[in-house]
Design a protein around this nucleic acid. Sequence first.
DNA 1: AATAAGACGCGTAACGTTTCACTTTCAAAA
DNA 2: TTTTGAAAGTGAAACGTTACGCGTCTTATT
Lengths: 332, 332
Amino acid sequence: MSTIKDVARHTGLSLATISKYMNGGNVLACNRILIDEAVAALDYSANFSAQSLKTNRTKTIGVVMPTLSIPFFGTVVSALDKTMRAAGYTCLITCYDFDRELELEKLRVFANNRVDGLVLVPENVMPVELESIIHMRNRDIPMVLLDRSLKDFSCDNVVIDNLNITYEATERLLTDGYRRIAIIVGPLHISTANERLIGYRRVQNDYGITVDDNLIKIGNYDFESGYRLFNEFMDMEEPPTAMIITNYDMTVGTVAAAYERGVNLGTDIGFVGFDAMDLCNVRKPLLPFIEQPTELMGQKAGELLLKRLLGDKEGYPQLIRLKSRFHAPIVR
Amino acid sequence: MSTIKDVARHTGLSLATISKYMNGGNVLACNRILIDEAVAALDYSANFSAQSLKTNRTKTIGVVMPTLSIPFFGTVVSALDKTMRAAGYTCLITCYDFDRELELEKLRVFANNRVDGLVLVPENVMPVELESIIHMRNRDIPMVLLDRSLKDFSCDNVVIDNLNITYEATERLLTDGYRRIAIIVGPLHISTANERLIGYRRVQNDYGITVDDNLIKIGNYDFESGYRLFNEFMDMEEPPTAMIITNYDMTVGTVAAAYERGVNLGTDIGFVGFDAMDLCNVRKPLLPFIEQPTELMGQKAGELLLKRLLGDKEGYPQLIRLKSRFHAPIVR
DNA sequence: AATAAGACGCGTAACGTTTCACTTTCAAAA
DNA sequence: TTTTGAAAGTGAAACGTTACGCGTCTTATT
């Protein structure tokens, strides 16, 4: 395993010169050739650990996610990775499978000199714990919270306008004449679920409608929840006449359940899906759905983190709230 | 940012003693207390770069995937992570978005002193390139190929019995009396797709049936392919009477398309889905489907890698081929 | 009380880089 | 030919660990 010393010996130049050249410095043309040759001959490449020990930078950022089984997060992270890569950073991803202890452990592993910055999709971590991690070892490590906010914790944050988006979707169903509008949301300790529920409630208040709490069901943001809760709604004595589903997996579950029961979404029952362009945009009737700016989320998070990595603290803590789009079919 | 030196100074002990204790060595009870106190007071934890520079180990393995948007891979990796974690290793994940250059770059980044081992789900990388990466810098770095095999490249490998599983599924449809059985497979340069197609062909040969190549369609393992190709099949002059779909996303696409067209899977048309327990196991009629041992794949890959990391070269290159299950409803 | 055996503690030399503070080289200007 | 100054090259000191080879202290045995 060859080192920079081997290159120095091979070329007859000094360590310092090789290092300088490898880091983009100028050397004489003849030496450049010499070094290039030696590097090729010895199959040299710089030792990452030594480099980051010396420079205290890793040019790496850590991404910590609740799960790898939700395509939404995959797409966001993919865009984040692209943004960071363009700036010379490598993204390293890990997931904690919704487990509180793991969430902390993974953050700690990263924070310990392995990464220059962090992106976190938080689930159960507590503000005080997070505080101690980003101030770890008296060094502030830049962190961006992604998709979700954390109460009582100020931090750079990229989210979408969850409240408005369910407000708008519900409003659409209201103006279409539906009155018994049901909603399936995620676990309420997750900010997205909570905000989406508030939007749903607020618009009905604004329209002078009393919300029937039986029309609110809380799922786990997964296929099974969507499938099961749709059936629960349809089995009610007085089923809802319309339904809003608030994430992708639950939308797919709902569509599957509807198919099985022979319920025709959009005609038999008013319907708004989520992130399910595939599913909603092709069928007849076209179904309205909410679309999150997935790629943009990753990109914005990356840009914000890069800004912090350059030491620019302007506007900290910054909250970037991106607009979702409500796609309503033109003709119903 | 405190170092082991600070702990030494704070306790009055030497560097060597602190280091020994931090690595599980024995020290006097009084010194243990002293060190624990100092570590807490100074918020000390070992510098990862220095540690791995010195020991030449990172206790980390790199996982390189085609995409993060396919839940199947997420589940596999989650199980892999669990296995490695239990053995004191950290998994770092990255994806290359189906891009050949990126696939190579990500592997190189990892191979450069950042990880002790590699797990790769290969797509376009060439054997010779892979060879040069795992022998990088004259150091052999253990690697396990996951889910897919690579022609002309011998390496530890964990896959499923793709051929048998489509053989069995097709055979079931044959014995149920179907004769125009269609199949939707993935891109044929991916070993899973290729093997699944071979199984489909072989059983029909064995039954003396001439395969109609119009009944074979090649998708991209995504929702859109399943949706589109199902429609293409149904729009044929003489549509197939049964259909086998060979991954999860395409199965969901197919189910969506069937729903939209009012085609009743399982009654109007024979059907075998893939990995779609959710989707297939709930509907009436129950649909047969193929189930991959997702968790087991991750676990086996982890165990094999751990064995290599311990220096045990027994049986190299080892091919672990896991059995899938064909779930057929008992009553049709 | 002497000593052997074992446990514990310590000094120091690496690991492979980068970087600071110099020195040398070389070509153009005087 | 000498002077000058920028460009290129160099030696050596870190960065924070670990681990080897010893020295020293404790304790038990005779």
